[in-house]
Design a protein around this nucleic acid. Structure first.
Length: 569
RNA sequence: CGGGGUGUAGCUCAGGUGGUAGAGCGUCGGCUUUGGGAGCCGAAGGUCGCAGGUUCAAGUCCUGCCACCCCGACCA
């Protein structure tokens, strides 16, 4: 491809509205163009990358025995009503009507449609197991689209669905997908960890997430280098820990005027946060107050709280609610003088802590040296603390590491969550009618492109791994008006094409510096620089990833590149 | 959906106290230049997010709306 004719337009300025590196660089390099919030056009160079990602996914899925098909974007409402998700999916579902007032949605995922399809054709255990998949644009009206391709409202996804005769066989399908996913991410040069995950809204019995490490991810993973355990932080259990037998000191009321936060209180009293009881007031769905108690150095993980309460219908109390219910101010909430209708939950972190600092629901005062048994009695203990680095691994108790990451794949063992309500049955070998045991498996194709940029870039631009690069080779002609240089570059371009190298030829009438800057930005792994060394019969080979440069005779250049990209036999 | 921010040329931005719009980059024409975002000369390019209002006069003041970005609860 000649750049002078290519629909690839880079920008010298950083785009104003992009913060994440992947977002900024993909826009700046001219790979994507924003149309509206969370909706992007994929431009030719970006599309080349996306197709490579897609093909890698496709190759491995096919190898696993899964079969590709294409479902519809426009889904009839009836199917969604069968599973109840027409009502429960909420405003994230793009809904529309046709000219006859029939209701449709733009498919955000395809459990309903695939189950409908399979129930029409598969009636016997002899046709199982079965895995079908598609690569298609998905639509989700996200509350908050973010970071360009990382969270879009329209995005490319690979979704697969497995159908098995029983749980045991379904687990085998699940395991084979898990293995396939790990191979895919490895091939794509995307560093991921396979983490146990919560099943969330989709339902089912168990689930894994594939998390790519990046600063701009929205997930937190805890993992253990010792035993290999890894899980989304929101499901890692934290147990009660017995504390050393400290001597109980006499309880004392101390003035703490205007001291509001745990940090201020800790500094004011000279007592570490580990010995302060933090109390957080929530309001539950029935407008009931719920007081959550946790150690001062800990945060409440609202995902865990949701799991404990069995609902996400709760929120933090407002300042005036705190005043009204507890007759105190934020910062002075405690367990003493509690109105009887306030429900209380104790986080495991508080268990056994002695000589605590506790507020008493009276502004500007705290008790110090408060002790369990003597000064108060425990209520119900639950696990609602956010996991931090250094917390014990639930498997081997060694300290965990915690990192931020981006969910690029998620697999679920669904069971009969969809097949049962949709009456998707087959006849088993015992002659009995049974519901399919299903699994579903997603990979965010366009999100992977963003994750790859996040993992492979520097201050100058993108450094595409060869496996997904839009081109394998870029030829830079540094001076188009110099006859000898131009002819050499043209000849090398022709030779590269003949050898089936994916090559971008920068034949634009621009200066050398301009072309180098652009080359760094768009991140093609290898380049041949054709400049004044042509007089000495040489060109320069550069590697974007390592920055390595070396001169080479013109006649050897292409065969050297072939070796680099592994196409040489 | 709450909180914060921003909308002016293709892009990045500047435009005290109201007086009819500017720069750099990019684009077009010309000359010079060519190994790390070149120089000079000339030109084109705007419903100042939208709608009202105040005023002799609004990019600027007032009201309402919209869009986009960022921070919090969901997801690939």
């Amino acid at each position: 491809m000649r750049w002078s004719r290519y629909f690839l337009y880079t920008s010298k300025e950083d785009p104003a509205d992009a913060e994440a590196p992947s977002h900024r660089l993909l826009l700046k390099a001219g790979f994507i163009k924003q149309v509206s919030a969370g909706i992007y056009e994929i431009l030719p160079a970006g599309w080349r990358v996306l197709k490579k990602i897609e093909n890698t996914v496709r190759e491995e899925m096919d190898k696993s025995g899964a079969q590709e098909l294409l479902l519809t974007v426009l889904n009839p409402a009836e199917l969604w009503k069968e599973t109840g998700r027409w009502d429960t999916y909420g405003s994230e579902l793009f809904r529309l009507k046709d000219r006859n007032e029939r209701e449709y949605c733009l498919g955000p995922t395809h459990e309903e449609e695939i189950t409908d399809l399979v129930r029409k054709y598969v009636h016997s255990y002899r046709q199982l197991p079965l895995i079908l998949y598609q690569i298609q644009v998905k639509f989700r009206d996200e509350k908050r689209p973010r970071f360009g391709l990382i969270r879009g409202r329209e995005f490319l996804m690979k979704d697969a669905y497995s159908f098995d005769r029983d749980e045991e066989s379904a687990k085998m399908s699940y395991e084979s997908m898990k293995y396939t996913y790990e191979r895919i991410f490895k091939k794509l040069n995307l560093e991921t960890v396979t983490a146990q995950a919560s099943v969330g809204q989709i339902g089912g019995s168990y689930s894994h997430e594939f998390i790519a490490f990046t600063e701009y991810g929205e997930a937190r993973v805890g993992f253990c280098k010792e035993c290999g355990y890894a899980a989304n932080a929101e499901i890692i259990p934290l147990k009660q820990i017995l504390h050393s037998a400290e001597k109980e000191k006499p309880i004392k009321k101390v003035p703490t005027p205007g001291v509001k936060t745990i940090e201020e209180l800790s500094n004011f009293l000279g007592i570490p946060p580990e010995k302060i009881m933090k109390a957080v007031l929530y309001i539950t769905n029935e407008n009931k107050p719920l007081l959550v108690l946790i150690r001062g150095d800990r945060e409440v993980d609202e995902n865990k709280l949701e799991a404990v309460l069995g609902t996400d219908e709760f929120r933090l109390a407002q300042d005036d609610e705190v005043r009204h219910i507890l007759k105190t101010e934020k910062g002075f909430i405690g367990i003493f003088n509690l109105p009887p209708h306030v429900e209380v939950l104790w986080d495991n972190s508080l268990y056994g802590v002695k000589n605590l600092v506790v507020a008493l629901n009276e502004p500007d005062y705290h008790y110090i040296n408060v002790n369990p048994g003597r000064d108060f009695t425990y209520g119900d203990f639950v696990d609602i603390a956010e996991v931090k680095a250094g917390d014990p691994c639930p498997q081997c108790s060694k300290p965990l590491e915690v990192k931020k990451g981006l969910e690029v794949g998620h697999i679920f063992l669904l069971g009969t969550r969809y097949s049962e309500p949709m009456r998707a049955y087959f006849t088993d070998s015992d002659g009995k009618e049974k519901a399919f045991v299903m699994g579903c498996y997603g990979i965010g194709i366009s999100r992977i492109m963003a994750a790859l940029v996040d993992q492979h870039h520097d201050e100058k631009g993108i450094k595409w791994p060869l496996s997904v690069a839009p081109f394998e080779l870029e030829i830079l002609c540094l001076n188009m008006s110099d006859e000898a240089i131009r002819k050499t570059a043209e000849a090398l371009y022709k030779e590269a094409l003949e050898k089936n190298i994916e090559v971008l030829f920068d034949d634009r009438e621009e200066t050398a510096g301009f072309k180098f800057a652009d080359a760094d930005l768009i991140g093609i792994p290898y380049r041949i620089v054709v400049g004044k060394k042509v007089k000495e019969g040489r060109v320069e080979i550069q590697e974007r990833n390592t920055g390595n440069k070396q001169d080479i005779p013109i006649s050897n250049a292409i065969s050297y590149v072939l070796k680099l990209i592994g196409k040489e036999k």
